[in-house]
C-alpha cells in the first residue's frame, strides 16, 4: 500500500499510467465487441478479462483499492469463468459463421453516435474547476466496510437475499425438465 502510494504520489507517473490503462481498456473493449479476426465468443470473453483488469488499474489510480480487488476477483475470476463454462456447454461452432448484418452495424453506429455526441458535449460544457479541491479520498477496505455495515446495512442484507434468490433461480432454470 505504501509503495503504491509512493508510486502514485508523483504527478507524472499517475497521468502516464492513466493513459496506458485507458488505452488498454478501450482497445480491449473494442476487441470484445468487434474483433476483426475472430467472432468466437471465447475470444470476446478473453478480451473482456483484459478490459476488466485494465479497469481495475484505473480503479487503483482512483485510490479505490478494495473495488479494484473485487473487480478482479468477482469479474475476472467468477463471472468470466461462468461465461467460459457456458460457452463450452453450448456448441457454438455453427454460430460463429453467421455474419454481422449491415442493419445491425448501421443502427448500432447511429445510436452510439447519438449517445456519445450528446454526453461528450455535456462533458465539454462542464464548468472548469469542478475538481479544484485536491481529491483526498482513500477507498480502503476499512473505510468502505465501515460505511457498508452502518449506513448501508439494509441494502447490504437485501443484496445478500438477492444473491440467494438468484442462486435458487439458477438451480431451478438449470434443471433438465423445465416445466
Amino acid at each position: 500500500m505504501e509503495a503504491i502510494n509512493n508510486l502514485l504520489g508523483g504527478s507524472m507517473v499517475p497521468d502516464v499510467l492513466f493513459y496506458v490503462f485507458a488505452a488498454l481498456t478501450l482497445l480491449c473493449g473494442v476487441l470484445v465487441v468487434a474483433n476483426p479476426f475472430s467472432r468466437s465468443p471465447v475470444t470476446s470473453a478473453m478480451f473482456l478479462v483484459l478490459t476488466i483488469i485494465s479497469m481495475a488499474g484505473l480503479f487503483v489510480l482512483l485510490h479505490a483499492f478494495f473495488l479494484a480487488a473485487v473487480q478482479i476477483i468477482v469479474y475476472a475470476g467468477a463471472v468470466i469463468v461462468l461465461f467460459l463454462f457456458v460457452i463450452m456447454l453450448l456448441d457454438l461452432k455453427e454460430e460463429q459463421r453467421r455474419k454481422i448484418k449491415l442493419f445491425g452495424i448501421v443502427t448500432g453506429l447511429i445510436s452510439v453516435g447519438a449517445i456519445v455526441t450528446i454526453s461528450l458535449k455535456a462533458l465539454g460544457a462542464m464548468p472548469p474547476g469542478a475538481e479544484a479541491t485536491a481529491p483526498q479520498l482513500e477507498g480502503g477496505t476499512a473505510a468502505l466496510g465501515k460505511l457498508l455495515f452502518t449506513q448501508y446495512v439494509l441494502p447490504f442484507e437485501v443484496v445478500s437475499v438477492l444473491l440467494l434468490v438468484a442462486m435458487v433461480g439458477v438451480i431451478l432454470l438449470s434443471k433438465k425438465d423445465l416445466k
Partner: peptide
C-alpha cells in the same frame, strides 16, 4: 435500438 434513440432524445 429504439430504446436507445428514446434515451438519446431524453438526454
Amino acid at each position: 435500438f429504439l430504446f436507445v434513440l428514446g434515451v438519446a432524445v431524453v438526454m
